[in-house]
Amino acid sequence: NQESVVAAQLIPINTALTLVMMTTRVVSPTGIPAEDIPRLISMQVNQVVPMGTTLMPDMVKGYA
């Protein structure tokens, strides 16, 4: 089963992602794949992401 990127903390809107903000977990439905974490660093979220929420492609500016 593929791991997806999950918020390790509350991420406010327009925050640039850092490694410490993200963790990985096997979730359903699947979100952004864990191997894309290096690509996500410094990208901004376009909404508030509560802790434990799976990051979906449409939540990250410039990802999709």
Rank of each mutant, 00 (worst) to 15 (best):
A8E: 07
S42K: 08
S42P: 02
K61H: 06
M43L: 12
V27G: 05
R25Y: 14
Y63A: 03
S28H: 04
M51L: 10
E3D: 11
V20D: 05
P12T: 10
A64H: 13
A7M: 03
A34H: 09
Q9D: 09
R39G: 08
Q47Y: 10
I11A: 00
L40A: 01
V49A: 03
M43T: 05
Q2T: 13
V49Q: 01
L19A: 12
V45I: 04
V27P: 00
P57C: 15
I41K: 06
V20H: 10
L55H: 01
V26G: 08
E35G: 07
L10P: 07
P57L: 04
A8P: 01
M59L: 04
V49P: 00
T30V: 14
I13K: 07
P33M: 10
P38V: 10
T24D: 03
M22C: 03
I13R: 11
L55Y: 01
V26W: 10
E35F: 09
D36G: 07
V45W: 02
T53S: 13
P38D: 05
V48W: 10
A64M: 14
P29Y: 10
D58K: 12
P29N: 10
V27I: 06
M22W: 02
A16K: 11
V20N: 07
I13G: 09
V5H: 01
L17A: 00
Q9S: 06
T53Q: 08
V20Y: 10
E3H: 07
P12E: 11
I32C: 05
T30S: 14
G52P: 01
M21H: 04
A64D: 06
L17Y: 00
G31Y: 02
T30R: 03
V27E: 04
S4N: 02
K61T: 09
I37D: 00
L19H: 11
E3A: 06
I32N: 01
M22A: 01
V5Y: 02
M56L: 08
T54Y: 03
I11Q: 00
T24Q: 11
A16T: 06
V49I: 15
T53N: 10
N14H: 09
I37A: 07
V45E: 00
T54D: 01
A8V: 06
P50W: 12
I37C: 04
S4D: 01
R39H: 10
G62W: 11
I11P: 00
V5A: 10
Y63G: 03
G31D: 01
D36A: 12
V6Y: 03
